[in-house]
């Protein structure tokens, strides 16, 4: 059976299971629970040009079948990544993908340039969909022009595969997806978190310091599956599906809706070993259904 999937020219993953940015640290945080070499890939924490402290606490609220977060891209900046973190993670035997964010297309271009010499980085995932920062982030992901502009800025400054991560907080995700594809994206990942809000009724205050935050977990899965299905039908490039995947069954839902690979995010918080279990469960499904290659069921719906 073949679980290998091709995401972009020169980027083949040993299986379709990738850990989502912001939920898996840089990888070593989970090494006690997961044999990292069994993963299709790891997408590391969102990286920006300058170090960022992120938003004030509280940054998290539990919600029905999910959670809201308002971390706000806390990270030590791209230079710290290149000079320190990269040395620690460069020998992890899986595809290590760096998620990047910025406040302007120039930020994205500069971060891409600084990452371009790192031979063990498999790809860049361009975050144009963070709902938790004031400028940039999601702003670029909510218009076709913004999505195209940022995609182009990265494409022109990075030789490796470029994955663009789309925001679900739009009226027509298909048009944004096409704009990113036309601007040179090798693959698209969707969805990022949904803008949400929760109130502590007894205290009459929002649960998050920023009032609104990004909703993730199984509560968003049906919407994410629908969006992946719509986008996969409309674009030629591979789609990476994510949104509330908790097990192999959920992952297969995305694959049948058209995803080439999937990302596991919030589920890592519930079960730190879930990512490799999902690989096993996909394999078990394929065995049971006589699927020799995932392409046989990809986009079957």
């Amino acid at each position: 059976m073949n679980l290998k999937v091709k995401i972009a020219p020169g980027l083949e993953l040993r299986n379709p299971v990738i850990t989502a940015s912001g939920t898996f640290g840089y990888g070593p945080e989970y090494a006690d629970f997961v044999d990292l070499s069994r993963l299709g890939g790891i997408i590391v924490k969102g990286t920006t040009l300058e170090p960022r402290q992120g938003n004030p606490y509280p940054r998290i609220a539990e919600t029905p079948s999910g959670m809201l977060n308002a971390v706000g891209l806390q990270n030590p900046g791209v230079d710290a990544f290149v000079n320190m973190t990269y040395r620690i993670i460069r020998d992890i035997d899986t595809a290590v993908i760096v998620n990047i964010s910025g406040s302007s297309p120039e930020d994205y271009a500069e971060v891409s340039r600084r990452l371009s010499g790192l031979d063990r980085i498999a790809a860049i995932e361009v975050n144009i969909s963070c709902p938790n920062v004031k400028s940039g982030g999601m702003a670029f992901g909510t218009s076709t022009d913004g999505a195209a502009m940022v995609t182009k800025a990265v494409r022109e400054n990075y030789d490796g595969p470029v994955i663009v991560k789309l925001s679900p907080n739009v009226t027509d995700i298909v048009s944004i997806a096409k704009a990113a594809e036309d601007a040179g994206a090798d693959a698209l990942s969707l969805t990022n978190t949904f803008l949400g809000m929760a109130v502590d009724v007894e205290r009459m205050k929002p649960l998050l310091s920023t009032v609104t935050g990004g909703l993730s977990g199984p509560c968003i899965r049906p919407i994410a599956v629908r969006m992946v299905w719509q986008v996969a039908k409309a674009v030629q490039v591979p789609v990476i599906g994510l949104g509330g995947i908790m097990n192999g069954r959920d992952a297969l839902e995305f694959i049948m809706a058209g995803a080439t690979a999937i990302q596991v995010g919030t589920a890592n918080f519930i079960d730190p070993a879930v990512s490799v279990r999902i690989v096993d469960e996909i394999r078990e499904f394929c065995d049971r259904h006589g699927v020799a290659d995932l392409s046989e069921i990809r986009g079957i719906i």
Partner: peptide, 27 residues
């Protein structure tokens, strides 16, 4: 005992403001 998710220093949700910046309470 800040509210946390992963418990492993990965999600950066449970941070406390320290003299060295935001640090995860969990890790």
């Amino acid at each position: 005992e800040n509210r946390m998710a992963c418990g492993l220093g990965a999600c950066l949700c449970c941070v406390e403001d320290t003299i060295e910046g935001h640090r995860c309470v969990c890790s």
